[in-house]
Design a protein around this nucleic acid. Sequence first.
DNA 1: TTGTAGGCGTTATCAC
DNA 2: GTGATAACGCCTACAA
Lengths: 353, 353
Amino acid sequence: MSDPPVTLRDVAARAGVHPATASRALSPETRILVSEETARRVLAAARELGYRPNPVARSLRTRRSHTVGVLIPDLNNPLFPPIVRGLDDRLAASGYVALIGNTDGDDERERVVFEQMRARHVDGFVLATAHLRSTLLAEAARAELPVVLVNRLAEDYSFPSVSVDNERGVRMAVTHLAALGHRRIAHIAGPQDLSTGLNRYRGFVAAMAASGLPVDPGLVVFAERFSLQEGQRCCRELLALPERCTAVAAGNDMLALGCYAALDAAGLRCPDDMSVVGFNDMPFIDLLKPPLTTVRFPHYQVGTEAAQLLLERIGGNDGPVKILYLAPEFITRGSTARVPADRGPADRVPSDA
Amino acid sequence: MSDPPVTLRDVAARAGVHPATASRALSPETRILVSEETARRVLAAARELGYRPNPVARSLRTRRSHTVGVLIPDLNNPLFPPIVRGLDDRLAASGYVALIGNTDGDDERERVVFEQMRARHVDGFVLATAHLRSTLLAEAARAELPVVLVNRLAEDYSFPSVSVDNERGVRMAVTHLAALGHRRIAHIAGPQDLSTGLNRYRGFVAAMAASGLPVDPGLVVFAERFSLQEGQRCCRELLALPERCTAVAAGNDMLALGCYAALDAAGLRCPDDMSVVGFNDMPFIDLLKPPLTTVRFPHYQVGTEAAQLLLERIGGNDGPVKILYLAPEFITRGSTARVPADRGPADRVPSDA
DNA sequence: TTGTAGGCGTTATCAC
DNA sequence: GTGATAACGCCTACAA
């Protein structure tokens, strides 16, 4: 009942040639080695029999699996689906497929998944895991495995990478707020052991300086995770300050949502009482009240570009390592407004502080 | 520089045995065939050399790729990440990996991706693509390829499947609304060529009957896509009706969000003027104003169960075909309220109608 | 209990 | 230009 798989021998037999010749005729690169007539006969036979090369056997011979490993923290984090689609679309166009591995930010799991993929002989890796340090890079370098980093940079080793320019994104946010008249601008920074958290914090300091604004150390609060809860906690701290800020540049959208919650709980309103800027432009974040002003990251392009870089390395391109930055886009929506004209600091006391 | 891969021969040589013996010692199933002493030596040698069996060679022999194809419409649709994670977690636990293919709901792309995965010799398929009809199933049946369906049922062929019980979900929604005193309950139905759209519509009709409520045909509107825009359009139609409904059971969360928009535009408020129930409990939908009352689907479990079923079929389990339904959970939030006590129908005219 | 030999399907390297 | 041959790494009758 189930079709017996058609092999190269079958095709060769039908075309009346040796399997080796059939093989040459079937591969575009080696087709020039056979006579035109033979090539036509082989191709025809292959088509008639519905021949499909066995990629497993081919891999065994060529030591190429046409497979790449992709390590991400968690597919459920809305940043990653578009990145993965970008990767997948670009890879598929070149006959590659991605093996997705979720690490949950756990170093041990990361190592296990990495090893399993190595065992499957992937041709390369895209690493989008969060933590800055990792022995994986050293190992990959030793094994001469092509690797591309996403949204992080290598410190010791030089690996190609694709990232969104976080500093530039923060500068857009700060510039926007400054143009609205804000001077006391706070920053809720993400975890400093994540490159996004660190770079956005650094970018904030630089952007404030560039805008000629002082950075009040009290107005920089550090979240321990990129979560709504942490954003809420940090915002509460800011609201408790004697001299309050008029705007917050949050480390990402989740932290910004935490600000919404904290303001709500304090009986304050956004943007009337405080402007809030997020980061990432998560799906559906434009449907909130108020719709969040944020910095949009071209996630899909991050994926396609990372795939492109990886394919270049796999293809044996030994040129200089490329470090690619993609520009973010600033999305002005309803959570930012001009600074209230004549309102002294702390003219209202938050209800729960 | 790059490590020469350790093969079975290397292990055998170090243990002083023949490769065949080493092979037996390394496989748990055949280990009993070998003396305990030999087994220990081989295992030790393998560990010392860091031996990892080459899955490609193994696949060539065993005709098992330990790989399954997963076809979904679009990873960016927030329903799918949790399903894919569920699949992946369960599959990984059995040494399988998933190849994800996005079809974008396009029949042609679906067929191409399917063929490519077949060419890669996947051991089975999880099909979560949307359209009800498909020649893929016939083809898979002919090739005796294990297949599990997700959120859809086979019509002609009998395939195992995992779905959430849509009828039951609608019944929960209708029962909830009826308990709040609503009698004129509308339904914004999803596309009827999708099983979710169709089954929820059928479920709505049945649930209304079960609650002893009449179904006013005018109160059932059909959306052409599961999109916010379509939800808005359909809700606008409902608001233009002379005898207005007091509650809407939407075909999914996006359609419910469309209701939010339409009510907003009409100067009406939810739930005061109209109750709205969604479907799916999308991420972050609880952060909207008002937080959406909806039917939560256990997406992650759909993934793990589908993987489980597929692994059973791949393992040669030829028992009766399992059709698995998972119960949804009703989440009461802020978008539903008691029907306004003494308010005649259509006492307000929508501003744009 | 262990060794021998052959083959899974393909491609690379010979020789003709 | 084409055919023969070997090998990729592993598994498994079969023989010893």
